[in-house]
Amino acid sequence: MARMKFLCDADRCIECNACVTACKNEHEVPWGVNRRRVVTINDGQPGERSISTACMHCSDAPCMAVCPVDCFYQTDEGVVLHDKDLCIGCGYCFYACPFGAPQYPQAGNFGGRGKMDKCTFCAGGPKEDGSEEEFALYGRNRLAEGKLPLCAEMCSTKALLAGDADAVSDIYRERVTARGFGGGVWGWNTAYGSDT
């Protein structure tokens, strides 16, 4: 197995927000924190297209580079995770991230930031896999159960794909060949480098 990636097929995405609520449901993500969301361009006009975005788990993740407390790590599968026990909620990663992935629950006085929260690729965090503690801090660890991120698994039109990079690009390539068009894989160059 190579490494895990997300891929959103903009010709399929219908902005139904299933990915958003699947994520909320799976991880009990609180109101105001959006690990995943759908962005629409040319809304209401010809050329309207939507993309589901979250942490892309970049190859050379800028968040890891800027974090002042070095709380980020990347798993063998390429998933970018962080240790909330170390995170100070400074917000540097938010400014560094090209996808706007980091989220901060309102915590503390005067609307101060709480610990950063983001998409985990349904891989939990640095706590015992499947433990209560892991769930409370990071959400469910589906990868450890042999399951892929729920947002992609429940996508209404199978626009959002997740999994081994070779597998998802294979599915996408097959689709583009069959239909004869493909709007390109949004965000892949930014996340995974231009050779992808």
Binding site: N25, K147, M154, T157, K158
Partner: peptide
């Protein structure tokens, strides 16, 4: 405690919309 995709269903092939993905509420 959780909702899993119903991949076997010939109707939805595991898929849901925003509403279907949140019925556990």
């Amino acid at each position: 405690i959780g909702q899993e995709p119903s991949f076997d269903s010939p109707f939805n092939l595991g898929a849901h919309c925003a509403k279907g993905a949140s019925v556990r509420e």
